[in-house]
Computed example of a mutant assay.
Amino acid sequence: MIKVIERLADGIDILSMKSEQIEVVVSNYGCTIMKVYMQDKHGHIDDVVLGYDDFTCYQTLDAYLGALVGRIANRIGKGQFCLNGKEYHLAINNGPNHLHGGIKGFSYQIFDYQIVDEKTIVFHYLSKDGEEGYPGDLDFKAIYHLEGDTLTIRYLATTSQDTIINITNHSYFNLSGKQENIYHHLLTVQADQFACIDGDGLPTGEIRAVKDTPFDFRTPALIGERVEKQDEQLLLGKGFDHPFLFTAKENQVVLEHQQTGRRLTVSTTLPGAQIYTANYLDGRMGKYGQHYFERDAVCIETQNLPDAIHLEKNPTTILKKGETYDETTSYKFEVIKG
């Protein structure tokens, strides 16, 4: 069942998507996932994503809590790229680099939307040619579908001229219901390799094997046993803030909190995910009177390789006129009994 539960100024709505198993609260502002309510193995219900009580925080703060991120997720080196022989210049908003679509990327836009049926919302936004420096009119849809315990998000886009696109959702997950940090969360990532970053979080182009490193989550491991390791890459990222390159085609990431029995399985058509352990949360006020600090959540940002326009011979982030960008990520929230 889907219903509008609050209307704010300027056409911003807050909607509830509810099934028998979970409830997801979303807004057409940035297609933001504001709340995910789910039971634990004892039947107790908690909200398992970070967010804000004060909606203006989504509009003014920089951590992208729950937001859809675009046109380009993650970083573009020095805020510039060349496409079809033409150079484009974007905002420098993260050290020396461009981050998450710019000053007013998709996370800060109001989408129009349609409730298609009792399980589906279609969010729509037309990003005009030149918006935030990107070429082409980008006609974009994000389709949110809640079926049982699984929220599926499908991203669709076409463009009036060749452009670049890399969309993700930036939810901060804490399956304890923020009763503790993420150190006791088990993480599994079906990835043999990860991309190295520099001190500004930008991928360097070096790809390393996860074997014999703290980045090896091919079998479940506690985040807390890995994130504090004295590893050069972890020190550069102040924790995990790295692209993992998937070896599997589905169910690539599993997050589990054994004390509550909650499990999140992320499945995507995209080739990788940025795993981020909330290293830059600064004690800001969040929901329910709680303050948010580093390690209070983990983001699983499914996407193409960050800065692919500079690092890949045939960049996966290029969308050509006449083609359709079509990617899907699903989030399965289940309770493991016993």
Rank of each mutant, 00 (worst) to 15 (best):
L99W: 08
I22E: 07
L186M: 13
D326P: 02
V69S: 10
I92Q: 13
L175Y: 11
T329E: 09
I275C: 07
P271K: 04
G177E: 01
D192P: 06
R262N: 09
E301W: 07
G11C: 12
K3D: 14
Q80I: 04
K287E: 06
Q233Y: 04
V210L: 02
A63L: 08
N304Y: 15
L235E: 14
L156E: 15
D326T: 10
T152E: 08
A67P: 02
E132L: 01
D117T: 05
G237W: 01
V254A: 09
I300F: 06
R154V: 01
N166L: 01
Y292S: 06
D192E: 15
Q190V: 01
D62T: 14
P271D: 08
I33L: 09
T60R: 08
I182C: 02
V4L: 03
Y276H: 12
T188V: 14
D112Q: 12
Y64I: 04
L245M: 13
I165A: 01
E323S: 12
N169Q: 15
I103W: 02
V298Y: 08
Y37Q: 06
T269G: 13
P315G: 03
L99G: 02
A297M: 05
D326Y: 05
S330H: 01
G338W: 10
C196F: 04
I5F: 02
S27H: 12
N94T: 00
P214K: 00
Y37C: 00
Y292G: 07
T302P: 05
A278K: 05
C57P: 01
R208K: 13
G199R: 08
S176M: 11
T188E: 09
D282Y: 02
T188K: 08
S16C: 06
D46V: 09
P243Q: 12
H89D: 10
V253D: 00
F293Q: 12
K41V: 12
Y113I: 12
I165H: 04
V254T: 15
Y155P: 05
L175W: 12
I207G: 10
V210H: 02
